[in-house]
């Protein structure tokens, strides 16, 4: 919305950055996300309470000086658990979002640019993945791959790789369909035709013209993906696919808190708020990026 003011030739990167920096919500969100990340990374240095100290004398307590976020039903400190869980949840959320979004964009844009054979074939794969019954499939994956991945990446590393692969691998289909639908429409638009007439290669058409205009739904999808992945991680641990039961994650804290919602709302509050803030900030960063990348925006 900002009118063009400066006309100094700048590199595209710098222009993009300048446009992004002008999107105040996006900048604020980036700061917020940075704080969250720093918090979970550096938190254990500042808050030295163990995550698994059981204290039956202090169960389900609300926030206090000893336990700023309160305690759960075993008297474990929720702040420590939120910090520890945040590392996993954020890592899983981002990694799974990246996998799902990237796979979705690649499949969707390839399908959207090709006609004859490739499009039906890719849509067949998409339909297949949409139809797969998730629970038996997950059990099959655990059964086939858990021990191998454990051997390759170690206990926690193996689980992390598997969770990201499973969540990302089972959730790219909506992105692919959205991208393809946008491509079908955009590839016939005047500005793409113009580019084509000017001799732009397919790759140039896609990267320079079509994809930037198809990003809106993709950004929405990937933000939703982050929260979905954080929550999906907790459901996976109920299939024995996730992290061991004593390792807290935000999704798991939220799940464990649900039966105590009436007397201990604080238990769910912080986990819910953390997921909310993550989603919120990612979304605004996404919006800012899109505005910044928009080739037709000047500024």
């Amino acid at each position: 919305m900002a009118p063009a003011r400066v006309r100094v030739p700048a590199s595209p990167m710098r222009q993009t950055w300048r446009r992004f920096a002008r999107h105040r919500l996006a900048v604020a969100s980036a700061c917020l996300l940075a704080i969250l990340m720093l918090g979970v990374i550096l938190g254990p240095l500042l808050w030295r309470v163990r995550i698994d100290d059981i204290d039956f004398a202090a169960t389900l307590q609300g926030p206090s000086a000893a336990h700023p976020f309160g305690t759960d039903d075993l008297g474990q400190d929720l702040l420590a658990r939120m910090i520890y869980g945040g590392r996993i949840s954020l890592a899983v959320g981002f990694a799974a979002m990246l996998v799902a979004t990237l796979v979705g964009i690649v499949v969707g844009s390839v399908a959207g640019m090709s006609r004859r054979l490739v499009d039906p074939a890719l849509m067949w794969v998409t339909d297949l993945f949409l139809s797969l019954p998730q629970l038996p499939l997950l059990l099959l994956i655990i059964y086939l791959f858990r021990d191998r991945l454990k051997a390759l990446f170690g206990v926690e590393g193996g689980i992390f790789v598997m969770i990201v692969a499973v969540i990302g691998g089972l959730r790219w289909m909506p992105v692919a369909r959205l991208v393809r639908a946008q491509f079908l429409s955009l590839r016939e638009k005047e500005f793409v035709e113009a580019a084509r007439a000017l001799g732009a290669s397919r790759w140039e058409q896609v990267v320079g013209h079509i994809l930037p205009n198809a990003l809106g739904p993709v950004i929405v999808a990937s933000t939703i993906e982050v929260s979905a992945a954080i929550i999906a991680e907790s459901t996976l641990s109920f299939l024995g696919l996730g992290f061991p039961p004593d390792i807290p994650t935000w999704g798991r804290i939220l799940f464990d808190a649900k039966d105590h919602l009436d007397v201990a709302p604080h238990w769910a509050l912080f986990a819910g708020a953390a997921i909310f803030l993550t989603v919120l900030s990612i979304n605004f960063i996404g919006d800012g990026l899109r505005d910044a990348l928009d080739p037709r925006r000047i500024g």
Partner: peptide, 19 residues
């Protein structure tokens, strides 16, 4: 044919899944 293909894969997944 695409449904037949999908059904074969579904059937295999279910048959191989533990339980």
């Amino acid at each position: 044919p695409s449904l037949l293909g999908i059904s074969l894969i579904l059937f295999t997944v279910l048959a191989l899944a533990p339980g």
